[in-house]
Each structure stands twice: as C-alpha cells, then as structure tokens.
Amino acid sequence: MVVIKTENLTKIYTRFEKEAGLKGSIKSLFHREKITKTALNRFDLKIEEGEFVGLIGPNGAGKTTLMKILTGIISPTAGNVSVLGYVPSELKNAYKKQFAIVMGQKSQLFQELSAADTFLLLKEIYDIPDTEYRKSLDYFIDLFSVSEYLNVQVRTLSLGERMKMELIAALLHNPKILFLDEPTIGLDAVAQKQIRSFLKEVNRDKGTTILLTSHYMDDIKSLCKRCVVINRGCKIYDGSLDMLFERYQTHKLITVSFSEATDYIPHFNAVIVEQNPFKLSLMVHSKDARCILTEMLRECEISDISIEAEDIGNVVERIYSDKGGILYEEVH
C-alpha cells in the first residue's frame, strides 16, 4: 500500500535580498529586493508501507523542505501530496496521531524535567491508553537500555542519551510513519551505531515506514534499501541503494607494497594517492584495475596488495554533481 505520494510537488520560497553594509541596510528600509528560490521542483515520490527510505542530497537540496511538507509544517506552492490518505497541510489531528518527526537539532523534551515527565505529557497529547503506553515504554526502555536515565533531568543527559529519549518520545504512540531529519548528527560512532540498530529494529518489528535524511552515508547504507537522491529541488535518483553505488562507485583504491625499492609509473589512467619507493596507492577506474594489477605484478616485486572500494565521500560528491539526469530509476 502506498502511504506517501507526491505529484509535481513544488515549493517556492520568497526571500529578501539586502546589500551588505550600512548603506545597504538603510536602502533596505525603503526598498527590498525580492528573490525566489525553488526548493522543490515538480517532485514525484511514492513510498510503500513499511519501507525504509533514505533521502540524500547536499545542503539546500530540498530534503528538509520535503519533510516539512509531508508533515504539514509548511504548505506546498503547487502539486499534490497525500500521506496516509490525508493532505498534510490541513493538519488534521487524526493525521498528526499517525506520524512522528524527529529533528536531530531540535528537541521536544522539556530540558528542566526528566524524560519520563515529557513521556507522560505525550501520553495525554496522543491519547495513548494506559496499558498501551506502559507496553510501548517498556519495549523502548528495554530496546535502548535507558532505564537509568529515565528520571534524570534531560539537560544533564549526553547527546546520545538525549537522542535515544527523543526517539522514544516520537515512537510512544506507535506512529505509522517516522520522519527522521539528521537523527545521528553530532553523535559519536558508538551512539550512531546504537541509533541505527534501534531504527532497524523498529522498522522490522513494528513495520513503521521510515523516511530518513542524513549526511552520514553510513546511516543510509546500513539502514535503507531504497534511496532517493535530491539536488536543487529535483529528484535525480530513486531506486536501489546498491545499484546507486554500483553506478557511482566507479573507482578502486589499489595499494601495493614492494619488497624492494621501486620507481614504478603506471601506464594506464590512474591517480597516484601516495607513493614512496616501497609503497604505492592508486585510484583507478574499476574497469582498468585488472590491467594495472597484471602490469604491476609483471614489472615489480610485490610483497602485499590491497584493493578497496572508493571512499564513500567521493561517491556522494559524484552523485550530487551529476548533471546528466540519466540516473533516474523509478521503482514503482
């Protein structure tokens, strides 16, 4: 069943421009230059129930704008949007009870009180029956192992502990859809891993549809089978994450150690990443890797070889800078 559907979704923001300096400030009192920015441009999207979809794109690509439209925080300029059969911008309470949004940089917990106090408030706001509330809370406390922090003032929690509490607060009413905007931002590697495993379990156990934006590709790679790439308000890819990497992770990093000092220069197209008489690291196109290795094995005394997939950062950069628009793969 399709739970999120957008057609030709467009959002245009109006901004005012002001020249720098005092003169510009005084001038802006009388005349302000109006500029428009298209944050989303005829954006189509369909998400099925229970999917875990990664939404990636550079800053200002339109990811958060899409999230805000889907949750009814802002209204689209044009196009259609339907989530669970509701028009989000109508902000019906029946709809609001069926989703949750977690914004990594925004908190819904009361800083002065314990997380348990906020949970009690959310129980009433979402009309969660006592037994269901207890069951949900026990499940999440156990899953996240946070029982010892439950009655501690939120402002004294670490960022990782706070994020766990934010997620519990968002999930207490068992939403059908969870929107996650940078949930692991600022967290250390251990906390990121915990959050990821928690989200994976929620998606699997409760069948919650999750739409995730993150700048950490590790989040997307470990959680999402499907990925939507957005740039300048347009969708440039929609499909399998594996296929996306297959297409864009075009290079290999070959590192060889020589048993004696060597002054080898490859005859194929390759970028030298590191070179000294006993070691050479090359970035080569995957299709050339075999030939280069054969050549090196023939010409040099090699003591060790390692072949690694290209750094994920380079891949992301290549995806975002793609202007061809040929990658679009409609999965539905």
Partner: peptide
Amino acid sequence: SGRFSKYIVKPM
C-alpha cells in the same frame, strides 16, 4: 527560530 514546528505537528 523555526522551533514552532514542534507544536504544529502535535495533535492538539
């Protein structure tokens, strides 16, 4: 500051 969004999404 944009923090008003957290009230908009609550069923109340």
